[in-house]
């Protein structure tokens, strides 16, 4: 046997132990949505992948808490819908979060949510009511109307909203226990457009889970919002339209974990003036002298 072999085994054992510890730490800090606990803080969209295999591989490395899906009229030969897509979803074993994407009124959104509830056998719904077809900006009025109705119907509503505080407060008053503010318009990849307002939202609503949805383009964007204390991030296009979506899914998973760990660790406060991190005492070539105590009495 090679002399270094036991050391390699010991090192691998150490790594495995650390991985177990990290897993346990994640379970100690779960994402809680409507009473359901998740170890992952990444939600993954299922759209615009090159192939079902690519989507499956991305799910495998991203380890998402939930997968978002939608409802559409059946298109012939589509790989992203129908029975084969259904089978793929079931095989992942992940929690499914249907959306009401594309709905332009509260009524459309409520009816779509009802169809999703029957089809996916779930009462969670990612509520989208679009108010502008250019920016895909949420319609705040339709959103509150639809959320109020869906809560009455027994849904657990996760509304896709802006960072507007009054809108968010209205949605909470309507019974939403989770909010999904955008970072930027859907599919743009611009990253947080209005960091100050997002951070103010986090400060004004410290208890409610806030999931950043839409507009994230890079793992650094995701890490940034997690460092600000947001609870999770929903990613789709930034993964599926990357040149290597599976590798990008892994990068996002790492970034979200890093951002969360940094938030929990408590970042230092920003200083106006430079502060040397190396002690000034004992620096050579200075004019003063320092007496070194060797007796232990000074």
């Amino acid at each position: 046997m090679h002399a270094a072999f036991p050391r390699v085994i010991a090192w691998m054992s150490f790594i495995q132990q650390r991985e177990v510890e990290m897993r346990e730490r994640e379970m100690d800090d779960p994402l809680v949505l409507y009473g359901n606990r998740f170890s992952s803080r990444l939600l993954l969209g299922t759209s615009r992948y090159e192939s079902p295999r690519q989507l499956t591989d991305a799910i495998g490395v991203a380890d998402p808490a939930m997968l978002t899906v939608s409802l559409r009229r059946q298109l012939s030969a589509s790989k992203e819908s129908g029975q084969s897509f259904w089978d793929l979803l079931r095989e992942t074993g992940r929690v499914i979060l249907p959306n009401t994407a594309g709905c332009l009124s509260a009524r459309e959104a409520v009816q779509t949510a009802c169809m999703a509830r029957e089809l996916f056998q779930t009462k969670v719904i990612k509520l989208e009511v679009i108010g502008d077809e250019v920016s895909l900006q949420p319609d705040p009025f339709g959103l509150v109307e639809a959320a109020s109705e869906l809560v009455k119907l027994g849904f657990q509503v996760l509304p896709y909203c802006t960072e507007d505080w009054v809108l968010c407060r209205r949605l909470m008053n309507a019974g939403c226990e989770v909010l999904m503010p955008w970072a930027a318009p859907i599919g743009t990849g611009q990253g947080p457009r209005n960091p100050r307002a997002l951070r103010e939202l986090r400060e004004r609503a410290p208890e409610i889970p806030l999931i950043i949805d839409a507009g994230i383009g890079l793992p650094s964007h995701a890490c940034q919002v997690m460092e600000w204390g947001f609870d999770a991030v929903l990613i789709n296009t930034a993964v599926s339209r990357a040149i290597d979506p599976v590798r990008m899914a892994s990068a996002f998973a790492s970034a979200i974990k890093a951002g969360r760990a940094a938030f929990v660790a408590g970042p230092m406060s920003v200083q106006e003036e430079a502060v040397s991190s190396t002690p000034e005492i004992g620096r050579p070539f200075t004019s003063g002298s320092i007496r070194i105590c060797t007796s232990g009495t000074c």
């Binding site: 899906v69 939608s70 959306n99 789709n236």
Partner: peptide, 10 residues
Amino acid sequence: VDVVHPTAGG
């Protein structure tokens, strides 16, 4: 009448 199926979404 609209008949809808599960499909990919974000």
